[in-house]
Nucleic acid binder design. Structure first.
Lengths: 348, 348
DNA sequence: CTGAAAGCGCTTACAG
DNA sequence: CTGAAAGCGCTTACAG
């Protein structure tokens, strides 16, 4: 470690070095190293490859990107990479796009408009080939204007945008229908006989929170069930928030709680159990996402399955096609209830 | 979306465009935009800034990186970004290094040597300023040779390497002492009176698995407790693996199980409970990591706390200093038991 | 304080 | 099939 500085003078091996060793021009080396379709004599190719091998030549992607205007990178915005939901999604994206030689910048906005904008600008500066909005948009007018300007400029230069969340940005999109999926959960509970259902909402400044919340209210009213403010609390999409929200709601005499993500459902389950309520005998809990962890919840969690990995994966497939100049159709993915043990019919 | 192609001809706005509008040379524009210390007249600076603003100029980082040989990017290798452990670590890294203007490439090796090598080469090609090994090394001789060659070359060109895991690579390092932390867990259980302790190991081809496993054996023997093969099973660091392993072990009459990560401890807890064992009355379970989810486990999990976020964060601080040309000392972080409800003294 | 020029490491018409 | 040359968008001695 100590000699790092002294060695730092040793130079990079460039096309030129390879060219000199192979006794050909840099143009020729470039052609063989970049797998250009331009013809190169077999014998020449061999010499070049040997020289490259010998010198441990690695083409500089920065230089290549600068001239081709293709960086082979994509920038993805998530809310929080430590949230397993986003980890799963990014994994799906990466697993699929990797083979095409694309590398991923990943950035957590922390749901902070300024921070998200900063990252978006950085992505632009690094000339990413695609922008991926894995994070739902923030409900902030100034932010909205800036994002739209930026995306427009980005696309006008040939950039692709891919939307994997509830977002106002228009681009290629993997749709997950939060509204109908929320309704599915409400119907499921209503069919079981629940009449008073509590709801734990996500952060109010997120589009996805608003959609799930509205869908909840609509579904509940459509079924003729009670909807009032005492039945809903905000849980910030976090474990802690879920705990707080559950305790806030639980006094209202409801027989079930629908949390708008699993993290909150997990927190709610823990808090409810610790407060002496039995799940599902006293109260049912339903989550949203179906994280791998939902199965090892305090009570195995019945939840709405969001095909998170596939959202990433299908997104990558869209991306590949769009990057290749095609105009692929958007894809639509749906949720479904996965029944575990946190739900039962209300006691008579 | 439909007009993306037709617009793609519109050109990027470059230094030159700004220079023309401001009626100065590109050198001058460069100086003001890059906050160079080279003097620029106030009046000139104002004109440049105005022109840049008007054109929506974003300096091209690729070009800048090519000439400065500083890309302001860092490449981080994790095993699996959907594993909350790595998500947490990357978050710590990002939160801290972001302010310095560095962007993160993140890549999941999937514990596949070929894939990890592919990413490492890509990072080199993109001229990242630093390589971060968040993932423990793989126990594969050919891989080891290649990684060492690659890292040596990388460092010889002035690159920084940062190790945040059990790894053979030498570089700046945040040490987490897996051995002593494992011993702490064993001692904790032994002090409670446990004599037969089961162990769920991680994938055998990972250095960190081997270290924790060896430390377990040593600690157990030091305490004069039983160690034999029937007490250990491999659980691949996953929930599913933890389930399988727990069921495999549980017949051996042990009174406690130590899982070498929380994911496996969670799976084990679920499987044990479902098989009719009570935790901790019949059997105690101890995890390793203290994921945020450990608290919302089937039984709130007693576990060894690994300061994951801080490993990332402290790593970023080291990185910042190393990148600035200093030679910061490595940092050492320690584990501790966090007591929840999955452990009790064995029944008499 | 300002600018002309060389150069970072590539790719790609163009000419032969 | 091969190469000389221009150029991608920047930075930075060097000269004035």
């Amino acid at each position: 470690m100590s000699n790092r500085r002294t060695l730092s003078a040793r130079e990079r091996v460039s096309l030129r070095a390879v060219a000199e060793l192979a006794e050909v021009s840099v143009a020729t080396v470039s052609r063989v190293m970049s797998r250009s379709s331009h013809p190169v004599a077999d014998e020449t190719r061999k010499r070049v490859l040997a020289a490259a091998e010998r010198l441990g030549f690695q083409p500089n992607q920065l230089a290549r990107a600068l001239v081709t205007a293709r960086s082979q990178t994509v920038g993805v915005i998530v809310h929080d990479i430590s949230d397993p939901y986003f980890g799963e999604l990014v994994k799906g994206l990466e697993d699929e796009i990797r083979a095409d030689g694309y590398r991923l910048f990943v950035a957590s906005s922390d749901r902070n408009p300024a921070r998200e904008l900063e990252y978006l600008r950085a992505f632009e500066a690094y000339q990413v080939d695609a922008l991926v909005f894995a994070a739902s948009s923030l409900e902030d007018p100034a932010y909205r204007d800036e994002v739209e300007t930026l995306v427009e400029r980005f696309e006008s230069r040939g950039g692709i945008t891919l939307v994997l969340s509830e977002h106002f940005v228009e681009g290629h999109k993997v749709h997950f229908d939060n509204r109908s999926s929320t309704a599915v959960a409400v119907d499921y509970l209503a069919d079981l006989g629940h009449r008073r259902i509590g709801f734990i909402a996500g952060p109010p400044d997120l589009t996805v929170s608003r959609h799930r919340h509205q869908a909840f209210q609509e579904a509940v009213e459509k079924r003729g069930l009670t909807y009032d403010d005492s039945l809903v609390a905000e849980g910030s999409f976090s474990i802690e928030g879920g705990k707080r929200a559950a305790l806030e709601i639980v006094s209202g005499g409801e027989t079930a709680i629908l949390a708008s993500n699993d993290l909150m459902a997990l927190g709610a389950s823990r808090a409810l159990l610790d407060a002496g309520h039995r799940i599902p005998q006293d109260i049912s809990v339903v989550g949203f996402d179906d994280l791998p962890l939902a199965e090892v919840a305090p009570v195995p969690l019945t939840t709405v399955r969001v095909p998170t990995y596939d959202i990433g994966r299908e997104g990558a497939i869209l991306l590949r096609r769009a990057l290749a100049g095609e105009d692929p159709d958007d894809v639509h993915l749906v949720g479904e209830i996965v029944e575990r043990r946190s739900v039962a019919a209300p006691r008579a």
